[in-house]
Amino acid sequence: MTHLIETRELCFSYDDEENESTENKLEGKYALCGVNITIDKGEFVAVVGRNGSGKSTFAKLLNLVLEASSGEVYIDGKKVSPEMTDEELLDLRRRVGMVFQNPDNQLVATIVEEDVAFGPENLGIPSAEIRERVDAALELVGMTEYARHEPHRLSGGQKQRVAIAGIIAMMPECMIFDESTAMLDPSGRAEVVDVMEKLVREKGITVINITHLMSEAARADRIIVINEGKVIGEGTPKEIFTNTELVRRAGLELPQCAALLGELRARGVRIDGAGITPDECADIIIKKLQNREEE
């Protein structure tokens, strides 16, 4: 079976010419270097890393916003390259949708539903079908009542949900969220992550959430940790969260309760399993305390 997304030895450098010599290669001037990742259909993957780790670069290589310096990207077994024809490129961008960080800078139209229609209109979908898609997309993100509103009057979370609807209306197979929650307040962030989860669980759309917030990454099925342009770890949230050393090396911060468990473990308390939500952690600690009483 082919993977939905597969990268082989993917490298990218922002200043092409200077990097011709091998010296620079060693100095790590690459924003991304030797990345091998596979992502399957219907997966919910979080890509985490600190600022400048190359995680956003990785996302932009997937739908050819940036061109890889070397290495290959395959989407559904098809190679992504600048030599693609215009139709192939449009098809690629339709299949791999992308939601950006600043909600203001990705809304095009002055009315919410017009904006959602922008993508399908570009694809040349018949009018009646666009209408259906727009209504369905707005309903999915819970913005139906705002269909006739002006985007600039909405809150950050609402704007971002409109942006998501705009991508959903193109019927993508995969959606990449490039730090889409970074500019939002906690409630807006929760709204957006809820929508991501809905997309994966109900629509079967593959979601890649690029973030530096571990609490958000915890909701994914799988976490990929990137640091200095390289993948330094990969696993389920529980696996990653118990690996305190890896998280520290990536320059990230564990959610407080996971950090507490890690600290206890470091002090010599034997803790089995990993907790991500406060409830899970509390359960683990209570169980541990009960065991001790019995001993």
């Binding site: 916003v65 992308m98 800078n105 990705q106 193109m170």
Partner: peptide
């Protein structure tokens, strides 16, 4: 940014 977003929306 808007231009990139528009390109990503085909």
């Amino acid at each position: 940014e808007l231009a990139t977003a528009m390109e990503c929306r085909c």
